[in-house]
């Protein structure tokens, strides 16, 4: 044990004693090279998506005469086809409507629920909090069959309303769980002094708690919007007519026809469908990260 400890000690001392150049080499191999490989692998599919979207058809599969990694005379033909000759704009619109409304509904319901669980502390609040967490763990892939049954019986099959009403099932648990963490971080004293000054619960919530929890609301809202935009299995099951489809379902079920794949149009569809969430994400990276890690850390 002691021998080993001494041996490693001298080893570390050696490393510390080496000159700057060697440490740089070591950092290059141990850190920058793997990082480069990771970034390359994680980003390559997006590059491939983008380059395919602007490649003219004759270059798409002709790897002999044209390098597959580059494009000569890029074209907007695929995007034009997508926007003017298919129902793609309608799918974008549907996805937007569904995502916005389900996010607003979930956020509103979650604010009240999280505040009640964290601050009103009614009897059974802790159990309710635990149930919310469990609800978050129920995956859509075991709910879609009975939900399809319900959606059909209620008579909202093949409408956007079906999606707006079912998306909150996975958004509310997540948003509530996240907001509970934010509300917990707001000092009790602020609320107490407001109570002493004669504020009602409603006033406390709207005038004190919510303004302080704005970062949490942004995080939850962005995350909920992204989750609804990405949702697939409910939209695939509950929607049948082309004009009501969302982007992921529409691209997959309507643009893939027969055996001849129009890769250019497919990849433009994937690219344009990803852009709204990527743009939103790029503006709010920190909020996004904090909501993702917050849900896990709590």
């Amino acid at each position: 044990m002691t021998d080993q400890a001494i041996a490693t000690k001298t080893a570390t001392d050696d490393i510390a004693g080496l000159d700057q150049h060697d440490t740089l080499m070591r950092r290059l191999v141990v850190i920058y090279l793997p990082l480069f490989v990771f970034v390359f692998v994680l980003l390559f599919p997006f590059y491939w998506m983008a380059i395919t979207a602007i490649k003219p058809n004759h270059q798409l599969t002709n790897y002999q005469d044209y390098s597959p990694f580059w494009v000569i005379r890029p074209t907007l033909e695929h995007i034009r086809y997508l926007l003017f000759d298919t129902s793609y704009p309608g799918w974008l619109w549907n996805t937007m409507i569904v995502s916005i409304f389900s996010t607003i509904i979930s956020l509103a319901a979650s604010i009240f629920a999280a505040y009640a669980i964290e601050r009103i502390r009614f009897s059974g609040a802790r159990v309710t909090g635990m149930m919310i967490f469990l609800a978050y763990l129920v995956p859509p892939s075991i709910l879609f069959i009975p939900l399809a049954f319900i959606v059909f019986q209620v008579g909202i099959y093949d409408t956007r309303l079906a999606l707006i009403l079912t998306y909150p099932t996975f958004l509310i648990p997540f948003c509530t769980w996240l907001l509970m963490g934010y509300f917990r971080s707001i000092p009790f004293e602020l609320e107490e002094s407001a109570l002493v000054d004669g504020a009602t619960r409603w006033q406390i919530l709207t005038k004190i708690v919510l303004p302080l929890a704005v970062p949490g609301l942004i995080s939850a809202g962005i995350f909920a919007f992204t989750l609804s935009w990405n949702e697939f299995i409910y939209a695939l099951t509950f929607i049948s007519s082309s004009e009501n489809k969302t982007v992921p379902v529409g691209v997959l079920t309507e643009l893939v026809r027969g055996d001849v794949y129009e890769w250019g149009a497919l990849m433009s569809g994937a690219l344009i469908g990803s852009l709204p969430v990527v743009i939103l994400y790029s503006f709010f990276v920190d909020y996004y990260v904090s909501s993702m890690t917050g849900a896990v850390k709590e």
Binding site: F38, V39, L42, L43, P45, F46, W48, M49, T226, W229, N230, F232, V247, P248, V249, V251, L252, L266, M267, G269, A270, L271, G273, S274, V277, V278, Y281, V285, Y288, V289, M292
Partner: peptide, 16 residues
């Protein structure tokens, strides 16, 4: 940058 694969809709990246 690294979080991008997780942000983009799964169906669309799966198409790629």
């Amino acid at each position: 940058i690294i979080l991008l694969p997780w942000v983009v809709p799964t169906v669309l990246s799966a198409l790629a």
